[in-house]
Nucleic acid binder design. Structure first.
Lengths: 194, 194
DNA sequence: CCTACCGATCGGTAGG
DNA sequence: CCTACCGATCGGTAGG
C-alpha cells in the first residue's frame, strides 16, 4: 500500500536526518544507536526495522552528498573558462555546506569510519573528484587565466575552506549566506588570478 | 632517583605520542584504552600508572599544540606590516601541521571530545585567537595593503586550509614541505593583496 | 606493571 | 514497534 511505503520511507529519512545531526555533533563512534533511537522516540531495537546497521546509516549520509557533488562536476559547462568553472565550484560547495550542513559535515569528517568496501570506494571517488578539479586549475594556468600555483594545493585549500564553514553558523548574525559565498570567492579566486 | 623520573616521563610521552597517532587515525571515541595499551606493549590497567584518565590524554595533546600557537601569535613582531604578519602566520601553521602532524590533527579534529571545563576553555581560547588574527587582517585592509575581504572569512579559510593538509603526506613525493608552504602563501596571500 | 574484576554500555537478534 | 536478551567491549579500580 502506498501509505505504508510512504510511512516507511519517511521514517527512514527521519532516522538519517537525526543521525546526521548527531554524527556531526558527537561523531559517528560517539553516537550510540540508543541515543539515536531516543531522539526519535522509539526503542533501539526498532531502528532495525528501517535500517540494516549503524554502518548503513553512515553510508547513506556520506554517499548521498558525495553523489550530488560528483553530478555537479560532471554537468559543468565545459565551454566556460577555467575561472568561471572554479568560481561556480566554490559557489556550489559553499551552498552545499550551508544548505546541507549536517550531512556535508558528516561526509567531510566521518567518512573515515566507513567500512572496508565503502571506505575504499569513497577514497577513490574523492581522489578522482580532486584530480578532475586539478585539471581545470591546470587549464587555467596554461591559459594564463591563473598564476602558476600548485593545482594540488589550490584544490585542497578550496575544499578545506568550505569544510571550515562548519565553524560558521553560530555567528550567522554577522554574515549572511550570500556574504560568506561572495567572500569565499573573493579570497580563493583572488589568490588565483594573474 | 633521576633515572626513575626520566623513565616515568618518557613513558608518559610515549603514551601521548602513540595516543595522538591513534586518535588521528580512528578518532578519540574510536580508540580504546586497550588498543592504546596494546600498541605500547602493556596492559590497559597499567596505563593508569602514568595518566589519570583517557580525557587527560586528549587534554594534554590538544593544549600543548594550542599553547604553541598562542605563543607564536603573542611573540609576533608588531612592527611588521599586516601582510608580513599574515604571511608568517601561514608559514608557522603550515610548519606546525607538517612537523607535529599527529598532534595538530588531533587538536583541530578531536577538541570536540574535551570534557566540560577543558572544552569551554579551548573554545574561548580559540575564539580569542581568531579575533586577534582578524584584527591584523582588518589593519591590512585599513592600510590598503589588502583588498576589502571579510577578515572573518579570511581567517577561517587560512586555518581551514592548513587543516586540509592532513590529506597531504601520502603524496609527499609530489610536493616537498617547502613547496607546500610556498604554495599556501601564494594562494592565500595572493587572494588578499590589492 | 600485572591479574582479576567492576558496572555500564555497545551493536544487534529472536520472537512476537 | 516492543520486551527481553546476547556476547563483546568499554573506562576504570583494587590489591598486590
Amino acid at each position: 500500500m502506498a501509505t505504508t511505503t510512504r510511512k516507511r520511507s519517511s521514517k527512514k529519512e527521519e532516522i538519517l536526518k537525526t543521525a546526521a545531526r548527531m554524527f556531526r555533533e558527537k561523531g559517528y563512534t560517539g553516537t550510540s544507536m540508543r541515543d539515536l533511537a531516543e531522539k526519535i522516540g522509539i526503542e533501539a531495537a526498532s531502528l532495525y526495522n528501517h535500517i540494516q546497521s549503524k554502518g548503513e546509516i553512515l553510508d547513506e549520509i556520506v554517499f548521498s552528498i558525495a553523489r550530488d557533488c560528483q553530478e555537479q562536476l560532471e554537468n559543468m559547462n565545459a565551454s566556460e573558462t577555467a575561472l568561471q568553472r572554479i568560481e561556480s565550484l566554490i559557489r556550489f560547495h559553499t551552498k552545499m555546506m550551508i544548505d546541507h550542513f549536517e550531512s556535508y559535515s558528516v561526509m567531510v569528517s566521518e567518512w573515515i569510519h566507513l567500512e572496508e568496501d565503502k571506505l575504499s570506494e569513497f577514497v577513490s571517488d574523492r581522489r578522482r573528484y580532486v584530480k578532475k578539479i586539478e585539471t581545470i586549475v591546470q587549464e587555467g594556468i596554461d591559459n594564463k587565466e591563473f598564476k602558476p600555483v600548485s593545482p594540488y594545493v589550490v584544490v585542497l585549500n578550496i575544499l578545506s575552506s568550505v569544510r571550515g564553514l562548519e565553524f560558521w553558523q553560530k555567528s550567522a548574525k554577522t554574515h549572511t549566506a550570500e556574504e560568506i559565498e561572495e567572500n569565499m570567492v573573493k579570497h580563493l579566486i583572488g589568490g588565483l588570478k594573474l
